[in-house]
Amino acid sequence: MRLIASLAVVTGLVAAPLGAHAASLHTDWEKYKVTRAFNHLSADGQRAMADILNAKQILDGGQTDAAIPALYDATKRLTAAGKANNKFMAAENSLQPAPQHPAPNGHVAGTTPVAWVPVGGEVIGSETLAPEKKAAISTANTQLKAGKTQQAAQTLQVVAEDADFIMAITPLDQTLGAVNRATVFTEARHPKEASAALQQIIDNLVFVSEDFAETAIPDQGQSAPARK
C-alpha cells in the first residue's frame, strides 16, 4: 500500500496540476481509511456473529438439532477472539455510540471495564449519493455481514469519502454467557428460550464511529499511504 501511494505521489507531481494531485492524494487516503477501519474487525468475532445469527434463524423456525453446530462454532470462535489482539477494555459508559445506532431508551450503561470484541460493521452513505455508490454500499454491507471484509473493502473503493463506517462491538464475557445459555436451551429442545438468549446479544451490540475505532481498537498494523 505504501509503494502504491508513493508511486501516485511521484506520477502526480510530474503529470498533474497541484490541485488534481491534492485531490488524488485525498482519494487515496480515504480509500486507505476504509481498509484500515476494516482491519479493526476481529475475524473470529465476525464469524461468531454470523454463527449466532444463523443459529437464531434456525431456532426461530422451531428447529434445535440443526442449530447446535452453529452454537458450538460461535463459542469456539468467541473464545479465539478473546485471545486475539483486536479486543479492548472499556467501560460501556465510556463508549461513544454512533448517532445512527443510539442506545435503547432506558438502557443503563455499565461502569466497570470489560473486554469488547469488534464483530461487525455497517457502511452509511447519504441519500444524495449516486445510484452506483448506493449500490456499492449495499453490496459492501452484505459482504460485511457475511464476514467478507476484504471483498467489502474492494467494493467500497468507488465510494471513498462519501460514506461513513460504524463498527459493531460486543461485550465478550456477556456474549459468551448468552451463547452458553442458548446452547443449554437448545440441547433441552427449547427453541424460543434459546432464541431469546441470542436476541440479547443482538440487543447489546454497541455501534461506535470510525474515529473511536482509530483510538481504542487495535488493528493489524497496516501501513498508511504517504500524506503530503
Results as ranks from 00 to 15, higher is better:
residue 89 M to N: 10
residue 63 Q to M: 14
residue 104 P to A: 13
residue 93 N to R: 13
residue 136 A to N: 05
residue 194 A to D: 09
residue 183 T to R: 15
residue 100 Q to Y: 15
residue 66 A to Q: 13
residue 115 A to C: 08
residue 65 D to Q: 14
residue 87 K to C: 02
residue 156 L to C: 06
residue 112 T to G: 04
residue 130 A to N: 06
residue 155 T to H: 01
residue 159 V to M: 02
residue 126 S to C: 11
residue 200 Q to I: 08
residue 140 A to R: 07
residue 183 T to E: 13
residue 182 A to G: 08
residue 124 I to N: 06
residue 131 P to Q: 05
residue 181 R to T: 03
residue 101 H to F: 14
residue 141 N to Q: 02
residue 168 A to R: 12
residue 116 W to G: 01
residue 179 V to F: 07
residue 142 T to M: 00
residue 88 F to A: 10
residue 192 K to Y: 00
residue 166 I to M: 01
residue 155 T to W: 01
residue 163 A to M: 12
residue 115 A to P: 08
residue 72 Y to P: 00
residue 198 L to K: 09
residue 124 I to Q: 13
residue 108 V to L: 15
residue 183 T to A: 14
residue 190 H to R: 15
residue 123 V to Q: 10
residue 101 H to D: 05
residue 168 A to N: 08
residue 183 T to D: 14
residue 94 S to R: 13
residue 183 T to K: 15
residue 140 A to T: 06
residue 184 V to C: 01
residue 199 Q to V: 08
residue 67 A to T: 11
residue 92 E to F: 10
residue 152 A to S: 03
residue 171 P to M: 02
residue 123 V to W: 07
residue 83 K to E: 05
residue 185 F to W: 13
residue 191 P to F: 04
residue 160 A to T: 02
residue 77 R to P: 01
residue 79 T to L: 07
residue 189 R to N: 15
residue 151 Q to E: 11
residue 184 V to Y: 05
residue 83 K to T: 12
residue 154 Q to A: 04
residue 87 K to Q: 02
residue 112 T to W: 02
residue 117 V to H: 02
residue 73 D to I: 02
residue 199 Q to P: 05
residue 96 Q to H: 04
residue 135 A to P: 00
residue 175 T to C: 06
residue 98 A to H: 14
residue 197 A to T: 01
residue 100 Q to I: 09
residue 163 A to R: 13
residue 149 T to K: 09
residue 135 A to N: 03
residue 124 I to V: 15
residue 144 L to G: 00
residue 154 Q to D: 08
residue 73 D to T: 07
residue 163 A to H: 10
residue 97 P to K: 09
residue 182 A to K: 10
residue 169 I to E: 03
residue 176 L to C: 04
residue 161 E to A: 11
residue 168 A to Y: 03
residue 162 D to R: 06
residue 102 P to G: 08
residue 79 T to N: 05
residue 163 A to Y: 10
residue 102 P to K: 01
residue 198 L to P: 10
residue 126 S to E: 15
residue 117 V to Q: 01
residue 101 H to K: 12
residue 203 D to I: 09
residue 76 K to L: 09
residue 125 G to P: 09
